[in-house]
Amino acid sequence: MKTVRVNIRTLANAGAIRREKRNGRDVVIVPSATLPDNIVMNNIMYPAEEIEKSFGGLERTPAPLGHPTINGKFVSARDPEGINLSWIGAWNENVRRENGRVLLDKVIDVEMANRSEGGKAVLSAIDKGEAVHTSTGLLAMLEVANGDVDYKHIAREIVFDHDAILLGEQGAATPEQGVGMLVNSNGEAQEIEVINSAVDQADIELDWAVDSLARALERRQKATVLDRMKSVIMEAFGFTEREPSTNRKEDDMSVSKEQFDALSAKVETLSEGLANIGTTVGDAVANAVKPLVDAQNTALENQKAKDDAEKAGLVEKVVKANLLTEAVANSLSIEALKELAPKAEPGKAAPLNSQYKPNAEKQGFKVPEGE
């Protein structure tokens, strides 16, 4: 088997280009696709299992402007001289395989791109909405196909090198020599055959159209209540969201009684629905927390019964010990009763009875009158 270099051209999804800020830097993200499963190009078939084994190698690879060449020969986009020639601050990421196709995003650092004429040209084309083509550079070994098939070779041991951005060309630029350079394990450069291919654009554009439609439907489903109200009102009046023509007659803008009644009914229905939102949400929340509230109330009731029983025991204890009357004991908190309880233990001295008079006179003291 021989090793070849293949450049596969595809069309980027210009309709899905988006802008973000990463690490404080502005970036432009261009979705693209490449290499469908089992596709045949230039008499070479690319098996799904070979693509599956290798597609992850595209992650974080360079996205140069065109395929870099040195002295008219293709080189790897990771080659130092190749980087100097074609780097515009773009790389590939979010590589995945969906519906039998390799999908990936090209991230372009705006500040870095503006440092080169090529990078500025790419940003300008994107801003103008012009078509942006991409071209995947890969290495593969060609195996001779056997049997009654419509191709001559099968691509094996695929190694992805980069996915380039193309401007001003419908396919990969082919040097007159038609060769590329590959460094072998001994560090020696060797020439290899270069094959330029292109994926059927009609197939790609259909994929992008389906993707755009799916996104549009998703956005419509997420329309807010106000957007829907606006739509209902506009439809009731027979308007669209486009600006009315300046040549439209005032009679065309009039509203019939039937239209007005229909609008009133629709607005009233919407108003009733919005008015009940608070009640609906409140009921839902109340039903959700009811088990928690009930459990809390039960716990509180059980604790109160326990505290009441403990207090009753303490009241009985201090009353029997003649420390307090029952009425006074009941008026105290359970904490205060707990402080008095040790004094009611057997062997503890009881307080003096209010009717008791010490024999003060025998001790040489005079008892005041009335005592």
Score class of each variant (00 low, 15 high):
Val159Arg: 12
Arg96Asp: 10
Leu103Arg: 11
Ile158Phe: 06
Arg96Trp: 06
His162Pro: 00
Asp109Val: 10
Arg97Gly: 03
Asn114Ile: 00
Leu142Gln: 03
Glu98Arg: 14
Met141Pro: 00
Leu104Tyr: 10
Ala121Glu: 12
Gly118His: 04
Gly118Asp: 02
Val149Gln: 05
Ala145Tyr: 10
His153Thr: 12
Glu111Pro: 00
Ala164Ser: 12
Leu103Thr: 06
Gly129Phe: 11
Leu103His: 11
Met112Asn: 04
Ala140Tyr: 10
Arg156His: 03
Asp161His: 03
Ala90Trp: 06
Val102His: 08
Gly118Ala: 03
Ile126Trp: 09
Val159Leu: 15
Asn94His: 11
Leu139Cys: 01
Ile126Met: 13
Gly118Asn: 02
Ala125Glu: 13
Leu104Gln: 05
Ile126Ala: 04
Val122Asn: 03
Thr136His: 08
His133Arg: 14
Ile154Arg: 03
Ile108Met: 08
Gly119Lys: 06
Asn146Phe: 12
Lys120Trp: 04
Leu123Thr: 03
Gly119Tyr: 01
Asn92Ala: 09
Ala164Gln: 01
His153Asn: 12
Ile126Asn: 03
Val149Met: 05
Leu142Asn: 01
Ser135Gly: 02
Thr134Asn: 01
Asp163Thr: 04
Ala145Ser: 14
Ala131Asn: 06
Ile108Val: 13
Trp91Gln: 02
Val144His: 10
Asp148Ala: 13
Gly137Gln: 12
Arg96Ile: 07
Arg101Trp: 15
Lys152Cys: 02
Lys128Arg: 15
Ile154Ser: 00
His162Val: 07
Leu138Arg: 00
Leu104Phe: 15
Leu104Cys: 10
Lys106Arg: 14
Asp163Ile: 05
Lys106Asp: 03
Val149Tyr: 08
Leu104Ala: 08
Asp161Leu: 09
Ala164Gly: 02
Asn99Gln: 15
Ile165Trp: 03
Arg156Lys: 12
Val132Trp: 11
Ala164Ile: 07
Val107Gly: 00
Ala164Lys: 03
Lys128Asn: 13
Ser124Val: 00
Asn146Glu: 14
Ala121Ile: 07
Arg97Ser: 10
Arg115Val: 00
His153Asp: 06
Gly118Met: 08
Ser135Lys: 02
Ala90Ile: 07
Arg156Gln: 06
Lys120Phe: 01
Asp105Gly: 07
Phe160Cys: 02
Gly100Lys: 08
His153Trp: 15
Glu98Trp: 11
Val95Tyr: 04
Met112Trp: 09
Lys120Leu: 10
Ala145Ile: 07
Ala113Gly: 01
Glu130Trp: 12
Ala113Gln: 04
Val110Gln: 10
Asp148Thr: 08
Gly129His: 12
Gly147Lys: 13
Ala90Asn: 03
Ala125His: 08
Asn114Glu: 15
Leu123Val: 05
Val107Phe: 11
His133Gln: 06
Lys120Ile: 04
Asn92Gly: 01
Gly118Glu: 02
Glu130Leu: 15
Lys106Ser: 11
Met141Thr: 11
Asn94Pro: 00
His162Asp: 14
Ala113Tyr: 07
Ala125Met: 04
His153Leu: 14
